[in-house]
Design a binder for these strands. Structure first.
Lengths: 211, 211
DNA sequence: ATTCATATTGGGGAAAACACCTATTGCGTA
DNA sequence: TACGCAATAGGTGTTTTCCCCAATATGAAT
């Protein structure tokens, strides 16, 4: 897409105001073959943020300026799919519960075990890979849907509902011949060879954005 | 199904070894029009447990005998869909995180605010209603699938994949005529009138159990 | 004014699906 | 042994889909 190097390599983004913490975690991750980018504040990360970032986020809760929790909400508003692992020195139960209920992947306390956080990060990266591939599928389907004219969209929905051409013609007050034309165009633009495939595509269609 | 009174009324199940806590919470909920059943231990709840219980569970973490966290796992093993709200006097962050990651609906600390827990319980009951209706749909679909013979199931899968009768005949090494018979029986037993409806049903099919 | 996209309608024919019907074979159970 | 069920296969005819062709109308853009 708008990516300078083709497929985006997964990166672990560390956001923590404590330089020693950033460096030691970065060293741990890099020595385990992971790509890392560190940021000293939520603002710095937001500046660097791009919609096509892939990987996961290790986020300190308590920071000057934007807190980790605030950054989480800002990223959700941006519709960012990056899984987030919160780390904190002084967390409490309500804070952890709130973060998880808002979609954080995990919430752990410092000091954390090296193997433990490596395991969590690997899980998050796996989650992210699935998320990325789902997004790619959605984008692909949205692209095809965007190629349909409004009328074709109407016909497609009725096709997916199992209506016969005759019934669709009746529903829309047009002739069967016209329906046949639209139908053929729909199959063509959606790149499917059967109604069954079409229904599968329509049911996998992404929620609001391009659907 | 195996229910003495038709549809199961939603109930808030309270499991706590502290009688005063049970009683005060039960009073609060009942005075807000909710149906309540209290249990003094995890064992007592498990004894009373039935697969068709509807509602939600308010569960103390620390109890003699089976702990709340253990009970949670036991219920998951039983495939219970009851949403669980953990309450605890002395919870810590890892415990709360673990509970939520295992699927608990919430994790709150005593003493809790009346309005707060009422709000949480209402949310859980709503979640449970959706879950129940999804289960009913699954059961309905599973019932129809169970009526299919193995051969019909094969044919159905190929139909849903968008294969023509000719191709299905080829795939299975039988004649088109036979495929037509199976196909007709599939449409009949699945109670659909078009391939599109069939695909929708197949895609909504429940995961492992009856599918 | 011309071109382009969209929507519309039609003819004709091949292929497929669908709805009836009959019929044989094999396999468990009553 | 007789019965029902599942799977198999064929016949006949109707309906529907699908694919080729051509044509008209409208509005927006060039």
């Amino acid at each position: 897409m708008t990516d300078e190097s083709g497929t985006n390599q997964q990166t672990v983004f560390i956001v923590d105001d404590d330089e020693a913490m950033r460096d030691s975690l970065a060293w741990l991750l890099e020595s385990n073959g992971l790509r890392v980018r560190s940021f000293e504040s939520g603002e710095a990360f937001l500046d660097a943020w791009r919609a096509d970032m892939a990987g996961c986020l290790v986020l300190d809760v308590r920071m000057p300026g934007i807190s980790g929790l605030e950054l989480h909400e800002r990223l959700q508003a941006l519709n960012s799919p990056l899984p987030i692992i919160f780390v904190t020195g002084h967390g409490d139960v309500p804070m952890a519960v709130s973060a998880l209920k808002k979609g954080a992947a995990d919430f752990i306390e410092k000091p954390f075990n090296d193997k433990e956080i490596l395991r969590l990060i690997e899980q998050c990266l796996a989650t992210d890979r699935e998320q990325q591939s789902r997004r790619r599928r959605y984008a692909e389907i949205s692209g095809r849907l965007a190629a349909l004219t409004p009328r074709e969209r109407e016909v497609m929905d009725l096709m997916a509902a199992g209506r016969l051409n005759k019934q669709i013609a009746d529903d829309l007050g047009i002739s069967i011949k016209t329906v046949e034309v639209h139908r053929s165009r729909v199959m063509d633009k959606m790149e499917v060879r059967s109604v069954a495939e079409l229904v599968q595509l329509v049911m996998k269609r992404p929620p609001q954005p391009g659907g």
